[in-house]
Nucleic acid binder design. Structure first.
Length: 868
RNA sequence: GCGAGGGUGGCGAAAUUGGCAAACGCACUGGACUUAGGAUCCAGCUCCCGCUUAGGGAUUGGGGGUUCAAAUCCCCCCUCUCGCACCA
């Protein structure tokens, strides 16, 4: 296979397979802990093995690979692993559709996708590959679950949960998007079930507080997490029931308005609602309302035209401050999941309560007066929610409301009729899934002992592989006698049942980054020493769609592991980069919907549908997706242009955090650039074969001096663009400029010994700087120049400021802020000299036109502004 | 409604600290080489005015401000994308 001389034309297929083979033979990407070297853990979000690598993966992993290779060339010991988020529903759906076991489908996909990733030349340490569906992985997750159960951090509770009829399973709050299932967009309904929860709310405060201590995260993600956690500081107030024992606890952030509370609103699901209505003449109406609300789906409840409505439950409670009777309503806007499920309604100072009061003719009492204004409940058109002075508030009259927050809270605590409290929007994480293809929850239900965790020595609870898939997506586990029937691990009673729910797949992805540190470890979740060396992840890269879900769960899990003494840090990901989506224009036919580009026949200026001849609209640029038929297949492109071109385009077309608009012509342009470099080296390889890279000892002149300067400038720019900003697009531009500069050097000069030496430095610089981006091409060229070993093993080039310095500098001459002239001036010219030169400039003089010069501003090495 | 991030040529974009707006690339136009070019090389390429030469003017979503100087800083508005949304 070895070619003796360099081919004239760039052949990506040959070059890429050759170097991929060499890398593998030399095991170039293997890493181990090495205390003598600084570590760098670079991680990209691992893929779900859906079948094929798509362009979003290519972009994500191309970005990561540049950083991994760059850091390695900087001398870091780089951990760059890859694996599979392998449990999940698509496997079950495919199993039902194609009658193949989810495991088989998953492992086949993994094989295909692994070879695709290898074909792209990413520098992964494949020895660390893991798949979360393997028992040796989920075994430790079950182990942690048991530990959490023992500490009360995992618990079982009957509650209303989000249910997707299509997926036949429960969804976490984080998995409901605008009332729809995040996966299939089916409307989510509420269903009451016994479910396992993880007590993430115990860490709500800590998770929130640390949001401000992860400076390496994009602000956007941090705010999204803060909003999701949604902390509200306020008070709980107890409203005694009239004519019976007990009280209704209420959460409020506006305890300063409590004297204006004139009625009570409770969530329809609130257990007290039906009890209070029982036996009253309201009972039937209240029951009807509760039933109606239960049937209403979340999507409807959150729509814009959703009207506030409620029903009087036939009972009253007492405002503990005013002793006034307050009618109790059940209302659709009161949410059982938030606060206590009951709201004290203060219509004068809350817009929602105001509307409700107006609708049902309820009393409105103003208790906060704005300064210099008197509010009249009769004429108010909206609630007054701003600051003011308390009125009609007994002992608190005259107090500024901002001060009343504390005063009233103190009073509550003193009288024991309430207390200061904090409410979070964040709910505990429901992890039970009524699905087959997931990690079994390691619990047994015993007639005698109740809920019994599976002891460590019996782990893992293996997911039975002999399950047949059921129609409609129902889990086969509850019907698998061999799995369900077991004996109690505690008392040995033979009549015990296994839990048949599996864990949410987000549990697996909440600790895989630790597992990578010691993937084969069989004495625990991970080897503490390995984790101590590698963790935390220095740079994490992935899509913004995980801003809450995966990233919040991972932060939570890290805290749990820390409390078990397994890790020493709190935050798993020091820096986070959320890359943009890969987008492309869509084609839409009025009759046939979205079309593939080849189904839109180009005729003259317009396009017509291949099937019906209707005019095809070129739709907006949207995220690539199969359903929109605007995807580009990486395989096809690799075949045509090679992996390097594909990587280059993904990095060049846009900075990583921004969306990338796909352009076939842009890919072509990238290919052209690589061919251009190839020819450049091929053309000069004989000249520079024996030359040494220019070693800086001699003073250069003319084109060579310019080229030499450009080399150093390029090293500086590329290093800075990658290191500080991850702006690979400008890094590539800089190398393109260097290549253009080489081309511009007059032919004869390069064949002199001095020329050859500078040229060699130039070519090697191009090669080394591009090597993290297009690794295969650069390996081949590196070798062609007579170097041995891999480019990856060379160190990253450095630059010298003296070499960058220009002798002459272009100074812009402005008159009144407008550019009027430019002059070349010695780089070391002082301010006075620049000023004199500018004032003597012909064009400047003409513009000044004899007017007196008021002021001259000189910016060293940049410009002169003459103000007249 | 609340929060975040965008808006710069025909297109993707660049401008790191307030200091020449449009680097680099795509597309396009012209030329060279050529049997041919969808290969390659060279040149041009924001808009308007202009004796197509010289030159002048305008321009970073819109309006105002600060400054010798604003894509960049401040205020108001428009618009797009994303996230949350009856949160008591």
């Amino acid at each position: 296979m070895k070619r003796e001389t360099m081919q004239k034309e760039y052949d990506p297929e040959y070059v890429e397979s050759k170097w991929q083979r060499i890398w593998e033979e030399k095991q170039l990407f293997r890493v181990e802990e090495d205390p003598t070297k600084k570590k760098y853990y670079l991680l990209e979000m691992f893929p779900y093995p859906s079948g094929n690598i798509h362009m979003g993966h290519v972009r994500n992993y191309a970005i990561g690979d540049v950083v991994a290779r760059y850091k390695r060339m900087q001398g870091y010991n780089v951990l760059h692993p890859m694996g599979w988020d392998a449990f999940g529903m698509p496997a079950e759906n495919a199993a039902i559709a194609h009658n193949v076991h989810p495991a088989k489908w998953t492992y086949q996909n993994i094989d295909v996708m692994r070879s695709q990733l290898k074909r792209l030349g990413f520098s992964y340490d494949w020895d660390r590959e893991l798949a979360t569906c393997k028992p040796e992985y989920y075994r430790w997750e079950q182990w942690l679950f048991v530990k959490m159960f023992e500490k009360g951090m995992a618990y079982r509770k009957k509650s209303f949960v989000n249910w997707c009829e299509n997926c036949q399973t429960v969804l976490a709050n984080e998995q409901v998007e605008a009332g729809l299932c995040w996966r299939c967009s089916q409307v989510v309904v509420q269903k009451e079930l016994d479910q396992w929860f993880l007590r993430i709310t115990d860490y709500a405060d800590d998770l929130l507080e640390y949001c401000d201590r992860i400076p390496g995260w994009p602000e956007k993600v941090v705010t999204m997490q803060k909003n999701w956690i949604g902390k509200s500081v306020g008070a709980e107030i107890h409203f005694p029931l009239e004519n019976r024992d007990g009280h209704i606890p209420v959460f409020t952030t506006r305890q300063d308005t409590v004297f204006g509370a004139t009625f009570m609103c409770m969530a329809p699901e609130h257990p007290l609602v039906a009890r209070l209505a029982a036996g009253t003449e309201q009972e039937a109406e209240v029951q009807g309302f509760i039933e109606r609300m239960k049937r209403q789906d979340t999507a409807k409840r959150t729509s814009d035209d959703y009207e506030k409505e409620g029903v009087f439950v036939g009972a009253h409670c007492i405002n503990p401050f005013t002793k006034q009777r307050m009618p109790i309503f059940t209302a659709n806007f009161a949410l059982m999941e938030y606060g206590t499920g009951a709201v004290m309604a203060v219509p004068a100072h809350d817009q929602r309560d105001f509307e409700f009061a107006r609708k049902y003719g309820l009393e409105i009492i103003v208790v906060i007066q704005p300064k210099g204004e008197a509010l009249d409940p009769e004429s108010m058109t909206e609630a007054y929610i701003d600051e003011g002075i308390l009125v009609r508030s007994g002992p608190f009259d005259g107090l500024e409301n901002v001060k009343a927050f504390d005063a009233i809270a103190d009073y509550l605590e003193e009288k024991k009729t309430g207390k200061r409290t904090v409410s979070f929007r964040l709910r505990d994480w429901g992890i039970s899934r009524q699905r087959y293809w997931g990690a079994p929850i390691p619990v047994v239900y015993c007639k005698k002992c109740g809920v019994v965790p599976v002891p460590e020595e019996n782990l893992p609870v293996m997911l039975p592989e002999d399950a047949g898939m059921l129609e409609g997506g129902r889990s086969p586990l509850p019907e698998l006698e061999g799995f369900v029937k077991t004996s109690c691990p505690a008392c040995g009673h033979p009549d015990a049942r296994r839990e048949t729910d599996t864990m949410d797949t987000f549990v697996e992805s909440s600790w895989y980054f630790e597992r990578y540190c010691s993937p084969g470890h069989d004495k625990g979740m991970f080897d503490k020493k390995a984790v101590g060396y590698w963790m935390p992840v220095d740079q994490y890269i992935g899509g913004i769609e995980h801003a809450i879900l995966h990233l919040l769960y991972s932060r939570y899990f890290t805290r749990v592991l820390r409390d078990f003494g397994l890790v020493t840090y709190k935050e798993p990901f020091t820096r986070l980069l959320t890359q943009g989506m890969v987008c492309k224009e869509t084609h839409k036919c009025p009759d046939h919907g979205f079309l593939y580009p080849e189904e839109a026949v180009v005729k003259d200026q317009s396009r017509t549908c291949k099937h019906c001849g209707s005019e095809v609209g070129v739709g907006r640029i949207e995220k690539m997706s199969k359903s929109k038929r605007n995807v580009v297949d990486p395989n096809t492109l690799i075949e045509k242009y090679g992996a390097d071109t594909l990587r280059l385009f993904c990095l060049f077309a846009a900075p990583p955090e921004r969306d990338l608009d796909w352009s076939d012509q842009g890919v072509e342009g990238g290919y052209r650039f690589l061919k251009r470099i190839w020819r450049l080296v091929a053309e000069h390889v004989a000249d520079v074969q024996t030359a040494k890279p220019f070693d800086e000892e001699k003073e250069l002149t003319g084109d060579l001096k310019r080229l030499h300067r450009k080399i150093h400038q390029t090293v500086k720019r590329v290093t800075n663009d990658i290191e500080a900003r991850f702006h690979f697009n400008t890094a590539i531009s800089a190398v393109m400029e260097l290549v253009n500069t080489i081309h511009a050097v007059k032919a004869g000069i390069l064949s002199t010994p001095e020329g050859a030496s500078v040229l060699r430095l130039a070519l090697e610089t191009v090669i080394v700087l591009l090597s993290p981006i297009v690794p295969h091409l650069t390996e081949e060229l590196w070798e062609a120049l007579g170097n041995s070993g891999s480019v990856l093993e060379t160190s990253w080039p450095t630059y010298r400021e003296e070499a960058i310095a220009e002798d002459e500098i272009l100074i812009v001459v402005q008159v009144n802020g407008k550019v009027r002239s430019r002059l070349n001036i010695a780089a070391d010219a002082d301010e006075e000299a620049i000023k004199t030169a500018a004032l003597a400039d012909d064009r400047a003089v003409a513009r000044i036109a004899g007017r007196p010069v008021k002021k001259v501003i000189v910016v060293q090495k940049k410009l002169v502004n003459i103000v007249v």
